[in-house]
Amino acid sequence: MLEPTPFRTEQLRLETGERFVLTVDADGMPAWWPNLYCQIRIRERGISYSAMRAYMSAVCAFHNICAELIIDVDARIESLELFREEEIATLRDELREKRRNPTESVKNAHWKSRLIAVAEYIVWRCDPVIDRMVLDDKRLPEARRRLEALPKRLVGKIVVKKNTSKEGMDEKTEQAFLDAITPGHPTNPFNKRSQVRNQALWRLYHAGLRRSAPLILTGGHLHLNGDDPYVFVPRSPDDPNDPRADEPRNKTLAHSVSLRPDSAAILHDYMVKDRLTYPGAKKSKYIFLSQESSEKSPKPLSIGAVVGMYERLREKVPGIPADFAPHMVRRTNKDRMGDAAEEAGLSPSTEQSVINQQSGWTPTSETSLQYQRRRLRRKGNQLAIVMQDKATGGRANG
C-alpha cells in the first residue's frame, strides 16, 4: 500500500538530546523507506541536525514530485525500471524550485546538493534489489548499468563556482561595525533593551568565535578576571537540556579563546548587570538569552535570531557591506592575528600553530590561509611594489 503524500519532515528529540529528522506522510504517520534511510545512512555520518534535515527535505521533495507525476517509486525501484529521460528532466527542474515559492529557483550549489541527495537515496533503495538477483539473471548487467548511470543523469553538469574572494573587513568597515554594536551609538540599529547583550555577543564574534559558539556558552565557560581573560568554547552536541529546535553546535575542537581586556569588561558588565534583567535568567545556564524569555520559560538566543541581527546590520548601518556575515568578522580576526604574529616576530610555523589553537582547528590545519585572504593580498601587493622598485631602481616612469 502506497504511503500518502505529501511527505514532510518533523523533528524527533531522543532522550539523549539528539535531534532526529522524522519523515511523515500526509496522515502524519512515519514514512518507512525515508526514515530507514535516514537511520541507516544519514544518521551515522554524525552531521548536524540542519544538514540531516536538508538531506531528508530533498528526499521528501523527490517523493512528492513523483506522486504529482503519478510515478510509483516503489514499483520503479523493484522493477529497476527507474526513470525515463523526460522524467529525469522534470525531476531536475522541480528540484531546482524553491518549494515554498515555485516561481523562484535555488542557487546552483543548493540545487546540486538536492540532486546528489536524491541520487544517493535512489541508489540505496536499489542496491538490495540488485543483491537479490541471481548472478545468471540476464537482467543483471542492464540493471547495474542503469543504476551506475543514474547519478550522472540526475545530477548532470551543474557549475558551482567557489567564491575565493571573500575577505575580512577593511579598517573602515570594521570601525562601522564596532560603532554599530556600541550601546547608544547613533548607528546602532537595535532597540535599547538588547544593545548591551548584542555588544557582548558581537565582541565574542570579533574575538574569532563561530556563529553558534557563543550560543552554547554557560557562565562556567567565561574566565574574565586576571591578566589573561579568556572564554572556553566547548564541544557538547546533543544537549538534552537545550530547548532550541535547531541546536547550536560547535564544529571545531574544544578550545580557549583569549579576550582583550575591554571585551572581557563588556562581557563582565553584561553578566552582572544586564543579563539579570532578562526574565528567568537565574533559571537558565546559557549566557545569551532571548527577549522572548519569561520567568517560567527562559529562552536562550537562537541561531535564527543571530541571522536576523546580521540582516539588520546590513540593511540599516551605513558602511556595512551587503555580504556582511559571521565569517567576515571571523576572517577579520584571523587577519589581525596574523599581523600580530608578524609584529611579534613569530615564525610562520609558530604563527600557524597559535592561530589553529585559538580557532579550534587541528594542529596541522592550513585553514587559516583561507581566512587571511585580505592580509595575504595586502602583503602580496606590498611585495609586488618592492619588486617593481628593484626592477626600476626606484625611478619613476617618464
Rank of each mutant, 00 (worst) to 15 (best):
E3D: 15
P4W: 07
T5V: 15
F20R: 12
F20M: 08
T23G: 11
D27W: 11
W32A: 14
N35F: 12
R43L: 02
R43H: 04
G46I: 03
A51R: 11
Y55N: 09
C66K: 03
I70G: 09
E78P: 04
R84V: 10
E85V: 11
E85R: 08
K98A: 13
R100E: 15
E104Y: 05
K112Y: 02
W124L: 11
C126M: 10
P128T: 11
D131E: 15
R132Q: 14
M133H: 07
M133T: 09
K138P: 05
E142P: 04
A143S: 14
L147Y: 03
L147S: 07
E148T: 13
L150F: 09
R153C: 14
R153F: 12
L154A: 09
V155R: 02
N163Q: 11
M169H: 06
D170R: 00
A176H: 08
L178S: 11
P186C: 07
P186S: 11
V196R: 05
Q199I: 10
R203C: 04
H206Q: 10
P214H: 02
I216A: 08
H221E: 04
L222K: 01
N225V: 13
P229R: 02
V231T: 06
F232P: 02
P234Y: 01
R235A: 02
D239N: 14
N241H: 13
E247C: 12
P248G: 07
T252I: 01
S258W: 03
P261H: 10
D269S: 15
Y270L: 14
R275T: 04
L276V: 14
S284Y: 07
E295W: 11
S297D: 15
P300C: 09
L301V: 07
L301N: 00
S302E: 06
S302P: 04
I303G: 02
A305G: 09
G308Y: 07
K316Y: 02
P318W: 05
G319C: 09
I320W: 01
A322T: 08
M328W: 01
R330K: 09
T332R: 01
M337R: 00
M337C: 05
L346T: 13
P348I: 10
S349N: 13
Q357F: 02
Q358K: 07
W361R: 00
T367F: 00
Y371R: 01
G380E: 03
G380C: 10
A384L: 15
Q388S: 14
Q388G: 15
Q388V: 13
G393K: 12
G393P: 03
